[in-house]
Design a protein around this nucleic acid. Structure first.
Length: 468
RNA sequence: GUCCCUAUCGUCUAGAGGCCUAGGACAAUACCCUUUCACGGUAUGAACCGGGGUUCGAAUCCCCGUGGGGACGCCA
């Protein structure tokens, strides 16, 4: 393996809510890129907005990352713990003249913005406190704490080769001198990101599409600092199932909601990997395979709509191929949450093996297995349609055969059912369906001999006695 | 309003000028398998946003529209 220059990527959520689907995919791609190149993946918590950031949200993000198995190599770093560093850089910039104090009040700014909007112009700071050669600045108003603004270049263009979107060029004339430190001295987001990416040696910034417009500003600050400019890859957003922006009202946005809803993390990972990225016609692949294949060249530039049906399909696939012991554990905890003792029924591993081919999620699997544990007395309707006199007679015969069966195994139970059919002049479904109804309270189940076997003799006889 | 991004089946996508009468997958439909329901298998229908260029040739390149998204904060 060629020791490539060490790649360093980061995931930098702000802890104002849960780890949502879009964030999870961003994290996955940044993580995979670092893994692919034997680099480092850094987790950074952007909590400078103290009003909205909460420790619970930090924990929720950590939980989501852990559920997906996206482990970081460094961090988590917290921006609130790096304030001294930001202040230091701001002082340097002030001294170097790449930043300056601005005393414009919020009211003045509002008025300026209103004027510009009235003139149908793009609202922006007009540079009234920006020092220029030969320009005489007014004396600072007394008692006004200034903000610090970045002295953005006025000429030329900022350009970068976005790894997803291609070359993007923005004229400096479009950019204004943005605030890097508030009047109270705290640094702002666009500034912190730059210092952090610089200090942390980030080589590839893989982040959401919504940051494209911040990129030219960040590049300018990086240049003012004499820092190297990382590569940028902007991922387009993920839309909800309905084609609308993801919203907490309509969609499950927290990635851990999917855990609760019975999805396996590998299904989620596979789905997310394939949403906005492709490797030819490949649809199903492991995380390991994904890491080997992942590259920035095959990321889609346009927004993608989340499709629960496809996620369901992948989830069903991964459930089918999952280890029975693991599934039994998942089902046991889900049953326990419903107040059902998972030990009270047949061995869960055997039940899971019987049902896992037909479930699209773990909750459905638990639903299917529940009647093996808790007897569901058939409804009067089911009794009336299925437990006809002929069926009852056959089931009575069957009960005796089951009671006398030498061996409680499919190979003897299956023939016992078949022979009972013949003896009563009935077709297989005419006995099998009433038997399902009697045993499980429902007319559908996996192969009836297998169900009878897993249920065990005692339960089968007891349930037959209760119904007949 | 200004700037930026974006546009292939219902959905996710393949496609980087001829391999495309556009491929795969989910979903849909039909059939097969079957001891019911599923699973599985097979098959079918389904798309290059519109208009101009460039070229011998365009889904692929350029321009203009249109649609969608984003940004324009002492939010992140």
């Amino acid at each position: 393996m060629t020791a490539s220059t060490s790649v360093r990527t980061r995931f930098a959520p702000s802890p104002t809510g849960y780890l949502h689907i879009g964030g999870a995919r961003t994290a996955l791609f940044a993580w995979a890129y670092a893994r692919r190149h034997g680099g480092q993946f850094i987790l950074r918590i952007e909590d400078t907005d103290i009003e909205r950031s909460t420790p619970q949200a930090v924990q929720a993000i950590l939980d989501g990352m852990r559920w997906l198995g996206l482990t970081h190599d460094e961090g988590p770093f917290y921006q609130t713990q790096r304030m001294a560093r930001y202040r230091e850089v701001i002082a340097q910039m002030l001294a170097a003249g790449t930043a300056y104090h601005c005393y414009t009040s919020k009211e003045e700014l509002d008025a300026l913005r209103a004027e510009q909007e009235a003139r149908k112009e793009k609202p922006r700071y007009d540079g009234r406190w920006r020092p220029e050669p030969g320009k005489v600045l007014p004396p600072p108003p007394a008692g006004v704490a200034p903000v610090v603004r970045f002295r953005n270049p006025t000429a030329g263009v900022v350009a970068w080769d976005d790894q997803v979107k291609g070359r993007i060029e923005i004229s400096n004339a479009e950019l204004d001198d943005f605030v890097i430190a508030r009047a109270d001295g705290t640094p702002t987001y666009n500034f912190c990101v730059v210092v952090d990416d610089w200090d942390m040696g980030i080589t590839h910034v893989i982040r959401g599409d919504d940051h494209v417009n911040n990129t030219p500003r960040q590049i300018n600050v990086l240049a003012a600092l004499g820092a190297a400019v990382p590569a940028y890859a902007h991922l387009s957003m993920i839309l909800g199932d309905d084609g609308q922006k993801l919203s907490k009202r309509r969609n499950s946005v927290a990635v851990t909601d999917y855990d609760e809803r019975g999805y396996l993390p590998e299904a989620m990972l596979n789905y997310l990997a394939r949403l906005g990225w492709s490797h030819g016609d490949d649809e199903i692949f492991s995380l390991e395979q994904f890491v080997q294949w992942f590259d920035l060249d095959h990321i889609t530039a346009s927004a993608a709509q989340f499709n629960t049906e496809k996620l369901d399909w992948l989830n069903a696939h991964y459930i089918k191929s999952a280890d029975d012991g693991r599934l039994a554990g998942e089902v046991a905890s889900r049953l326990a949450r419903r107040g059902i003792d998972p030990e009270a029924g047949p061995p869960l591993e055997r039940a899971v093996a019987l049902y896992k081919d037909r479930a699209t999620n773990l909750n459905e699997l638990a639903d299917a297995i529940e009647p093996l544990i808790v007897f569901v007395h058939p409804s009067p309707e089911l009794l009336a349609t299925h437990l006809t006199d002929a069926a009852r007679a056959a089931l009575k015969t069957l009960r005796e055969r089951f009671a006398a069966a030498a061996d409680w195994q499919k190979i003897v139970l299956g023939p016992a059912i078949k022979e009972t059919c013949t003896a009563h002049g009935l077709k297989m479904p005419q006995v099998a369906i009433p038997l399902r109804v009697a045993l499980l309270g429902q007319p559908q189940s996996p192969a009836i001999d297998a169900v009878v076997e897993v249920l065990g003799r005692e339960r089968v006889l007891e349930r037959l006695d209760r119904v007949l």
